[in-house]
């Protein structure tokens, strides 16, 4: 019997496992009903952030452009989904055509 197995077979190990299972069930019980609502809220925040990052390219003056420019390569993958979600069928940027 390995050391790990011995630990689980002991009363302390069994108790720890029971607590872990309880915590997992409680986490699931806590998060599952609101998973969708929270994901949507996060997406709304991310969309706003995307607007900040690409503001200059869309012709909106952005005082933080020096910093947000650095982030553009990191967010390019999400750009296509974002402009479609914002109601623009094709990329609004002349020099950056993702579709």
């Amino acid at each position: 019997m390995t050391h790990k197995k011995r630990q689980h077979a002991s009363p302390a190990g069994g108790f720890r496992r029971a607590v872990q299972q309880l915590e997992t069930a409680a986490e699931e019980y806590y998060r599952a009903p609101y998973r969708g609502a929270i994901a949507r809220a996060k997406r709304d925040e991310d969309d706003l952030f995307m607007l900040f990052v690409f503001a200059e390219m869309l012709g909106i003056p952005n005082p933080a452009a020096y910093f947000t420019l650095e982030l553009q390569p990191l967010l390019l993958e999400r750009f296509h989904d974002w402009h479609r979600r914002m109601g623009m069928e094709h990329s609004p940027l002349d020099h950056f055509r993702c579709c």
Binding site: A25, E28, Y29, A32, P33, R35, G36, A39
Partner: peptide
């Protein structure tokens, strides 16, 4: 999709459904 559509254990799901 890991957000809205997630296969869930029936006991946990019953807990949500009942309390909702």
């Amino acid at each position: 999709d890991g957000v809205d559509y997630v296969p869930t254990n029936k006991f946990v799901l019953w807990g949500h459904h009942f309390t909702s």
